[in-house]
Computed example of a mutant assay.
Amino acid sequence: MSGAGRIWGLHLGLIAVLFALQFLLPAYHHGNLARIMVLASYAVGYNILFGYTGLLSLGHALFFAAGMYGMGLGIQHGGLSPAPALVLGIGAGAVVSLALGLLALRTSGVAFMIVTLMFAQAGYLTILYFGEYTRGDEGFVIQSAQRVLWGIDLSEPSNRYFAALVLFAACLLLSLWLIRRPFGRTLIAIRENEERVRMLGYDTQAHKLGAMVISGTISAAAGAFYGLLFGYAGASFGAVPHSILPLLYVLLGGAGTILGPFMGALFMFYLIDLSSGVTTAHMLIAGVALVLLTLFAPQGIMGELRRRAFGWLP
């Protein structure tokens, strides 16, 4: 089998396995995996900016929240049905990511991190300030009757799982296609040596802005789907700690690998889930696991697999 055939076969195979699991998993893990796929989609968006372009953002919760509240407020106060509300949420994330990219990409390195963090915090405070509409920290519930998309009740577990799978499959395959295109190859080159790429005549600012918009739009789609599938929008999803989650997922799974975000989200979700049943200090266990992985598998789970055995992994 050719290299391209193996790559597409692996990723399509993962989607097929996830599709089959919805008929095999018990209810608890069925619900968990649906949530993991949405969070992994969030991490896929983050990976395009951080893993492939080399830009470390600390403000991706802003895009996730833009998608979630664009969708949620459209349903709650605009009377929209789920389909246009999802489009509104994703569009809001695209606009916010474009605006932030135009400002933040005037900086680089630590300054870029601080600017993205600052705007994410501003977004979180905006949610709190307009509590009359957003309900602030309390958030608001999206009722089951408002979560019917094209006659499909997304509050029903099987439908929710399938919708999460459709989102994850779309984000995964889009990421794979993008990175194998000249645009994606240029992003990787920018990550490795931006000055050389600029010297070769490429507009690195335009490429980085494109990566920012694509990354933010995918993250917003994850936020919009999360709110719709699980029926809740709250300010905590726009807080700074929620910007750290995709970074952890990508680092654990392998930055700059297509499957890394999913593996990292799966690993971290169940590590926290299982350890919280043993101790209230479950985040300490997660922190120790992260330190150990950083020491002994610095390229993350998929990164180490690629380095040690499967060099063809994208």
Rank of each mutant, 00 (worst) to 15 (best):
M1T: 10
G3P: 05
R6Q: 15
R6H: 12
G9L: 02
I15R: 00
L18C: 05
A20W: 08
L24P: 05
L25M: 04
H30D: 15
H30Q: 10
A34Y: 08
S41F: 07
F50H: 11
F50R: 02
F50S: 09
G51P: 07
G51C: 06
Y52L: 03
G59E: 15
G59C: 12
H60P: 10
H60G: 09
F64Y: 15
A65P: 14
A66R: 01
M68T: 07
M71Y: 15
G72C: 10
I75R: 09
P82V: 00
A92P: 09
A94Y: 09
V96R: 06
S97L: 00
S97E: 01
L98T: 11
L98A: 12
A99F: 14
L100P: 12
G101H: 11
L103E: 05
A104T: 07
T107K: 05
A111W: 13
F112I: 06
T116D: 13
M118T: 12
F119G: 04
A120E: 14
G123N: 02
Y124D: 02
L125Y: 14
L128K: 11
F130W: 15
R135K: 11
D137P: 02
E138P: 06
E138Y: 09
F140I: 03
F140A: 04
I142T: 06
Q143I: 03
R147A: 07
V148P: 07
L149N: 01
W150C: 04
I152R: 01
L154C: 02
S158K: 12
Y161Q: 01
Y161G: 00
Y161S: 03
A164D: 00
L165K: 04
F168K: 06
A170T: 15
A170V: 13
L173Q: 08
S175V: 10
L176A: 05
I179K: 01
R180L: 10
R180F: 06
R181C: 08
F183L: 07
R185A: 05
R185I: 08
L187M: 15
I188D: 01
I188E: 05
R191A: 03
R196T: 10
R196Y: 07
R196A: 12
R198D: 14
M199I: 09
G201V: 03
K208E: 12
G210D: 03
V213M: 01
A224P: 14
L228S: 05
L228C: 10
L229V: 04
F230V: 04
F230I: 06
G231D: 06
G234R: 13
H242S: 11
S243Y: 14
L251M: 10
A255P: 03
T257M: 01
L259I: 00
P261K: 01
S276E: 13
G277P: 08
I285E: 02
A286M: 10
V288E: 12
V291H: 06
L293M: 14
L295K: 12
L305A: 09
R308I: 07
P314A: 00
